[in-house]
Design a protein around this nucleic acid. Structure first.
Lengths: 177, 177, 177, 177
DNA sequence: CATGAATGAGGCTTCATTCAT
DNA sequence: TATGAATGAAGCCTCATTCAT
């Protein structure tokens, strides 16, 4: 909290004029960043009429890019770190961030499967599998990445992920582009 | 530390007769679990002469299974959580766990690429991408998974990961099985 | 202080335009309530020419009733609570509230004793003993009374006190009414 | 807590090896002092076969004397002070101290009334009225008494209280000793 | 004269670590 | 070698008070 206060250029106690407690600060950070991002997904899925894998790449790219070079990139690691200390924060995150992601990406995957564009795969596993490598990037950067001398660059990593995952998502027996 | 002592059936101070400090305990836990697992990979890669994607699945399956239902499954999350508090622990983990994984899986991917079985993809990104969904499973279980009411089962998740990732790894233009 | 300001319908800092500090607010609250009440006692004692125990009951009843159902009923407990934090407040209270009560009730008790209406009893102890059950009522209501499921009603409690105390005050050997 | 630790001759954190938190310290203090005292009352009431007002004086005297010159004399004021900060402490005090006092003294007063020794008076009010002057003594000493230049001596005060209260308790119309 | 944002000291609590036994 | 009591720094939070506007 002291660090946050210093970053904000105020004294320790000042934070408590704006937030009830540490957990409330975390929730606000999530709300201001990830929640708004993830909420833009629903209409993107509803409105899009192009190729389903382009849409998927675009959505995941939007999520990813919204955090690259952004202090908010620290949030996923903070959530993981504090989930056991603040179960209410964990529940909040699941409800406000994970839930919409599951719902919207799940819908997209189902549509793609119905159109024969995506392989049939349990959406719960598929959503986790598609997002894990992207979330992992930020968690890595905020933890082990700080002392790793083999840096991981955001853009090529993202492209490598998308190329491989989207190809892997094609129905079996179908030739890749 | 008190919890660890109790689990070990000794009294609080006794830990310090065997370990210098908390960081040292973490390092020992990593050494006893992940390091030994990852070290078995090198000879598996050297000795194997079958299909390269079967080997890859087998290696990743070995890693994954070694942690499922094992208290050591908590370690990845601890490492992520404590990396900034204990930079020396982070360096140790990168050297002893991440390094060998990069080296051995990287060698395997290179061999597969040379044989035309795997697409050419920067090994640094590929290793991260292949392992991230698996590591993520344990991190999730030890954090948000505790309050998530949509449980993630280890085995089907692992199979979904492998099916998709290994198909995604095939060279472009090649028909999937 | 924030609560007081809100009750007063002003903003936090405004209090400090009218009072030097928290202690000063307490003193003002005492001055506005208890001091004026207790000061009315002197002339009541001087002017009264009826039965001395009726006067005593009337004075104590006036004090008691002035606080029943009044927010000022909180003051005695605040004084007790804050006496060690604000010794100057404690001295003020003794001088402005306790002192007059001792003087005026003491005078009344002396007069009654001279007339053979009251037993001879050290006035310092007698004043404390007569007022303690009444002050205690307000202290109880503002502290333990809040969680007690056997409520104490003001009027019957006061009457029980007066009946018993005034009878107890009669000279020994004298038949009660 | 720092003060308590210093009094105990230990460092701040040490208290928490023995107590969960501040409220727990308060409860322990009550348990070690007032609870044991009040619990001795029940059998005293049951066993006694002498004069009921002697018993009453003896019980109240026992309570009073157990705190005179004892650091535990500070507890009543602490309870009053902290009741709103620690409602659970307030409930504990009512259950463990006030409750037994009400029960045992109430029984004694009922017995005395049945025997024609005491006036008939609502036991809830009577118990409060009988104990208030005694509790008040300790509350006073720990708050305003510290800055009062008219000291209140325990023994004469107690005797004055008992003489007056026990006479007041006699049935109306009965000649005092 | 009023505001309300900011301060910072102080209070409760935790926990890695030490050390006398 | 093992114990477990004790330490003390650090963290979260509150709140009386100040001050620029």
């Amino acid at each position: 909290m002291e660090d946050i206060a210093r970053q904000a250029g105020v004294s320790g106690g000042t934070i408590y004029r704006y937030f009830d407690n540490k957990e409330d600060v975390f929730k606000a950070a999530v709300r201001e960043t990830l929640v708004s991002t993830v909420n833009r997904t629903e209409e993107a899925v509803a409105n899009h009429d192009g190729k389903v894998d382009d849409l998927l790449r675009q959505i995941l790219g939007g999520w990813f890019q919204s955090l690259v070079g952004n202090p908010a990139a620290a949030i996923p690691k903070v959530i993981i770190t504090e989930a056991t200390n603040f179960p209410e924060l964990a529940r909040f995150y699941i409800k406000e961030v994970v839930g919409p992601a599951r719902r919207d990406l799940g819908a997209l995957l189902s549509r793609g499967a119905a159109d024969g564009k995506f392989r049939r795969i349990d959406p719960r596993y598929a959503v986790t599998l598609l997002t894990a490598p992207l979330v992992w990037f930020f968690i890595w950067q905020e933890s082990l990445g700080a002392v790793d001398n083999e840096p991981l660059d955001a853009e090529p990593y993202f492209n490598a992920c998308m190329d491989l995952l989207l190809d892997g998502l094609r129905p079996r027996g179908q030739t890749t582009a």
